[in-house]
Nucleic acid binder design. Structure first.
Length: 1089
RNA sequence: GGGCCGUUGGCGCAGCUGGUAGCGCACUUGCAUGACGCGCAAGGGGUCAGAGGUUCGAGUCCUCUACGGCCCACCA
């Protein structure tokens, strides 16, 4: 249908600010076109060639090349013409005055009368709060009722088995307990809950486990900051460990409840009776069991080596918790604990005097303060400049120390001075060289980043202050040479942004290679499917190059390491010998182990005060939440879980670790599928961060918020004034009118609709707003249906067909079942956006715009039987549409579905547990669908003509079918065509195939099957019509020519269906051409009369 | 230094195994009240980043370039 959808306004009247033909091309443009057409194929002047010399030998061009050139020139010409036109349009367009949108009246907040946990009391739809869709009105009360009814519990068979279609289980990626939920969590919850609800409606045994992560470092530092700010600089040490941990628990409770409230607001159908927290007793037992077992197997070990040390948080960190910041050259950076910025990205040169000579040796460093820990100088053994110094010693200018000068092949002669200062205790490379060459390991730093006694005169000073004082002291001694820019990266703590210092500390480590192997295998062999594909590659790359994992953290909040040091009387000091550690679930067990290890020895036990990395317990999450290490019913029946859905940013931190822990501890994969969703950025594509003030709280979208309140929120956070200013500015541009209340359903639908499997999401609140409108559409449609069902309406027992449905009914049922097919397929393939688009399309363009419109006339004008059938179909299409939408919009669909009558013998309590629509071949009816598309095409043609000719009353339209089949269709659907043609139509007459068209009609070619005509009002100006039609004839003829050319060029290998399609296109173009030509002829004839 | 991704109408995005570009917002015109103005109808707007290649045919496949972004990496 609608072949000329792309054609211009047939009347030639202005539809835009410009009329008529584009202005003639400028001479400049014309010459550009000529140049493009005549120029060398490369288009540019070749290097070395005089720009004016066009007489060089030209290579022979093949016909193909020439054709390409011509094509290119045509393209260029077309483009230039367009540019001209656009310019003209711009010039012609005038600033238009727009009426400000009417502001909706604000009702006072809705008061819910339903007692908590009871089934919602539905108020009449003409009530002030129910006339149109208001999210807060629709979303109240339902969640409490669902929870109380236990709809979210897994539904086992009476024997306690998983139901026939199987189980579907998701353990929620546990949010950090101190953080507020952000829009990323809302995305995760939307996707997970959509899958959960869909599977539940399909009849599987479904479980969605909620919970939070204790988030060791984050939580501890949040509470420490709070203490410091609110209680006069109090530190955790002032409080003591026990009291501090107690305080953290209090905070945890408050935030945890906040998080749970938002999860419920979002409609996440978690089973709250199974809620987990990583520091719950059972999950802690899982941690102890895992640690002890892996220690006893030798995979967890104690070692004293360089760790990433954060002086601000005073703890070691794993490599993953360190960010690398790139510096192009000298850069001053803010460092926590310093008032002024510190210089990085430079390389400083200075000289060490050689002991016993007058010579010096020049070295370079990016961290001058580390020279206080230098214990050697390395040069390349073959370097002629330094060969004679090998074996000599440099003298440290500030501390009493001699630094051996030695040869090392890893030193590059060409880099810097070719001499490298060696700091084995504070540099990873130097650590290795120090070991190889037996150098001293001298730690110069205290845990807080100040210098210790080994720094001699600099003891007690902060390390970056020392950076400057070392330089000035060297200068005084004449040893300082100078500095240069040096592009480099510096390691920053991902939490505190402090500069990481490599430090020697005994820590617990986990050997990763033996665990990584099987974890790689299960992904490679498909036992675990990772989507998207790129995330899979990232996983392999990381797993294959994995380093051992530093497990211990010098924190108080978390799982204390279940390890005790055995202090044997007369034996080694605390934590100097790894063999003197025992690991056990309890102290008694530890004692027993120690007695066995050191029989007959007198000893005391000292427990390691450190805690484990947060991700250690998170790594056990999929099975610890189901009860492991206990053999619970949940663990037995529901493990492994189905899908792990999370942001790809924690693929390494979490997903990878769950996989190897799962395999190691349970012998099974923890889940069979990983889906990594996109990261959400702001509307300008920037990462959301607190300091930019562009973090979006999902509650603000659900509830709505004014711009002022949004701005005020910035002030509460601890942002610098400059940051607040920048963030305020951004908010003003992104949300000039604040955020409208959009509700959970629109938020969920939008976020899922953003999930196309592509890159990051640039979040735009306007999108939410449009889906809120979509919610209203669904609301209004339901209102219409309810208003058109008679009192005591009872839908038929079966949703299937009676066989007496009218064409529009057969069409909508066809569309409905195809929508069901699309949505189910899309969800099964995790093509989330395709599912939402199919739903959007069905509701808006099929059910509302077409079937509901068409049903009006059937219900009004049809026989009793016809209108009853139309109503039943209305019910089927709406009820099915709501059920199909439920996984995406749980609240709205429940509210509306509960207002609908049920089919007899259906006592389903809630849409939550109603069945999900599936494709049914009985409803599939392609012939009816095609026939009705013809009807729609005809009515669209009529509407278009009415508008083009500005006919406002009693329009007279004619439909001319072009085949007997088409004649049969349009004849029987005359009423539908009229209804769908709008209120300006007076009569729709169906012409016979061979009947001549009345004089003075404008034509609209619908398809090869039909044309429609409109009787032109008043006195017909044949000349004007001829002028209008001529360009259309030409355009149609062009299309025909193009299409003929295309078909002519089709090779032999072309698929039959493609060829057929192209030939049908040709027929359609031909038909269109003929329609215009005939119309033209009629007007020409009219002129003669 | 290594690896990955993106570039499609003014803006935000879809486009499956190659068959001649769609959607939402915005824009233009017409419609005020028995579902919906949070709406309906009719329209306008696209050298699919650039260059080359494969092909009868490229937004889609290959190569290179530019711009933007991400991840990983111990070089003084």
């Amino acid at each position: 249908m609608a072949l000329n959808a792309a054609s211009h306004n047939p009347t030639g009247e202005k539809t835009g600010p410009v009329t008529g033909q584009p202005p003639p091309l400028s001479s400049e443009t014309q010459s550009a076109i000529l140049q493009a057409a005549n120029g060398d194929i490369k288009g540019h002047n070749a290097p070395g060639q005089d720009g004016g010399d066009q007489h060089g030998e030209k290579k022979q061009k093949s016909a193909k090349e020439l054709a390409k050139e011509r094509q290119k020139a045509e393209k260029a010409a077309k483009f230039a013409a367009k540019q001209e036109k656009q310019k003209a349009m711009q010039a012609a367009s005038q600033p238009k005055q727009k009426e400000p949108k009417k502001v909706q009246e604000k009702l006072p907040p809705y008061q819910e009368d339903t007692p908590k946990g009871q089934k919602k009391i539905l108020k009449p739809l003409d009530d002030e709060y129910h006339k149109a869709y208001i999210p807060s009105v629709v979303e109240s009360a339902w969640y409490d009722w669902w929870e109380k009814e236990g709809f979210h519990h897994p539904d086992f068979t009476p024997e306690g088995e998983v139901k026939e279609p199987g189980s579907f289980v998701i353990s929620i990626p546990p949010p950090n307990v101190t953080g507020a939920l952000h829009i990323g969590h809302a995305l995760a919850t939307s996707l997970q809950d959509a899958m959960i609800r869909w599977n539940r409606m399909k009849g599987l045994t479904v479980l969605y486990v909620p919970g939070c992560d204790h988030a060791g470092i984050s939580t501890q530092s949040v509470v420490e900051n709070m203490l410091y700010n609110r209680r006069n600089g109090m530190t955790r040490h002032d409080l003591g460990r026990e009291k501090f941990v107690e305080t953290v628990w209090e905070w945890k409770e408050e935030y945890h409840q906040k998080i749970n409230r938002v999860m419920r607001r979002l409609g996440g159908s978690m089973d709250w009776s199974r809620e987990a927290f990583t520091m719950d007793e059972n999950l802690s037992a899982a941690v102890r069991q895992t640690f002890v077992q892996l220690h006893d197997e030798g995979l967890i070990y104690r070692a004293n080596r360089l760790v990433n040390w954060c002086s601000k948080l005073t703890t070691a960190l794993s490599n993953l918790e360190v960010d690398q910041k790139e510096l192009a050259g000298s850069t001053k950076l803010d460092v926590p604990g310093y008032d002024k910025k510190i210089e990085f990205g430079s390389i400083w040169n200075f000289k060490y005097p050689i002991d016993g000579t007058n010579e010096t040796i020049e070295v370079a460093t990016t961290r001058p303060e580390t020279m206080l820990g230098d214990t050697g100088v390395a040069v390349h053994p073959e370097d002629p400049r330094y060969k004679h110094l090998l074996g000599r010693k440099a003298k440290h200018p500030f501390v009493d120390r001699l630094l051996p000068i030695f040869g090392d092949e890893s030193v590059e002669m060409g880099f810097g001075t070719g001499a490298v200062k060696i700091t084995p205790a504070h540099d990873l490379n130097d650590f290795r060289r120090g070991k190889e060459h037996n150098l001293e390991f001298i730690n110069i730093l205290n845990d807080d980043g100040t210098m210790n006694a080994n720094a001699g005169p600099f003891e007690g000073h902060k390390r970056f202050d020392v950076r400057y004082s070392v330089i000035s002291e060297l200068e005084k001694l004449g040893l300082y040479v100078g500095k240069k820019d040096n592009a480099m990266t510096i390691p920053l703590c991902s939490k505190s942004k402090d500069v990481i210092e490599p430090m020697l500390k005994p820590q617990w480590w986990m050997e990763m290679k033996p665990l990584a192997g099987p974890a790689i295998d299960v992904v490679r062999n498909g036992e675990i499917k990772i989507m998207p594909e790129t995330a899979k590659n990232t996983y392999f790359r990381w797993m294959e190059n994995i380093d051992d994992w530093c497990l211990s953290r010098q924190l108080w909040w978390g799982h204390q390491v279940p390890a005790w040091y055995v202090k044997v009387k007369g034996g080694p000091e605390y934590d100097t010998e790894p063999e003197y550690w025992v690991c056990a679930q309890t102290e008694d067990e530890a004692r027993a182990k120690a007695e066995k290890k050191f029989p007959g020895k007198d000893f005391t036990l000292e427990r390691d005060p450190d805690c484990l990395d947060t991700w250690f317990s998170s790594g056990l999450w999929p099975f610890s939440t189901l009860g492991w290490p206990k053999k619970t019913h949940d663990f037995e029946k529901l493990y492994p879980t189905s899908i792990l859905e999370t942001g790809w940013d924690i693929l390494f931190f979490w997903v990878a670790r769950m996989i190897f822990f799962g395999l190691k501890m349970t012998g099974k994969v923890p889940f069979t599928e990983v889906y990594c969703h996109s990261l959400i950025r702001d509307s300008e594509g920037r990462k959301m961060s607190k300091s930019l003030g562009n973090v979006i709280d999902p509650v603000d979208i659900m509830d709505g918020i004014t711009l002022k309140a949004l701005n005020d929120k910035l002030a509460v956070g601890n942002l610098a004034p400059k940051e607040v200013e920048r963030a305020t500015k951004w908010q003003r541009s992104a949300f000039p009118d604040g955020i409208d209340e959009c509700g959970a359903d629109a938020l969920r639908f939008s976020l899922i609709n953003y999930t196309t499997g592509g890159g990051d999401i640039n979040f735009d609140v306007k999108v939410m707003r449009s889906y809120r409108n979509f919610c209203n559409k669904i609301y209004q449609a339901t209102k219409f249906v309810l208003g058109n069902l008679p009192e005591n309406y009872m839908p038929p027992a079966q949703a299937g067909k009676t066989g007496r449905e009218s064409l529009p009914e057969r069409w909508i049922l066809h569309k409905f079942t195809h929508a069901a097919k699309k949505v189910n397929t899309a969800l099964a393939q995790r093509e989330f956006a395709q599912a939402t688009q199919a739903l959007h399309n069905y509701w808006l363009y099929e059910l509302c715009d077409v079937y509901i419109e068409n049903s009006k006339s059937i219900i009004r004008d049809g026989t009793a039987e016809e209108s009853a059938s139309a109503r039943n179909t209305l019910y089927t299409a709406l009820d099915g549409g709501l059920r199909m939408m439920h996984p995406f919009m749980p609240f709205l669909t429940e509210e509306l579905w509960q207002r609908l009558p049920r089919r007899p013998n259906d006592n389903t309590k809630s849409i939550v547990i109603a069945s999900y629509p599936q494709y049914e071949s009985e409803l599939d009816d392609a012939d009816s669908s095609d026939a009705y598309e013809l009807v729609l095409g005809c009515s669209k043609g009529v509407r278009s003509l009415l508008q083009d000719y500005n006919v406002k009353e009693d329009g007279k339209a004619y439909v001319q079918p072009l085949s007997s089949h088409a004649h049969a269709v349009v004849s029987s659907e005359q009423a539908s065509i009229k209804t769908l043609s709008g209120k300006y139509i007076g009569t729709v007459t169906i012409l016979r195939q061979d009947e001549s068209v009345p004089a003075g009609c404008a034509v609209y070619p619908v398809s090869v099957d039909a044309r429609v005509f409109l009787q032109l009002p008043g006195k017909v100006d044949a000349d004007a019509e001829i002028k209008r039609i001529k360009p259309k004839v030409a355009k149609a003829a062009d299309a025909v020519k193009e299409q003929e050319k295309l078909i002519g060029s089709l090779g032999e290998s072309v698929r039959e269906d493609v060829r057929k399609k192209e030939e049908e296109n040709l027929k359609a173009f031909l038909s269109e051409q003929r329609a215009y030509e005939e119309s033209l002829a009629r007007f020409e004839e009219m002129k003669l009369q």
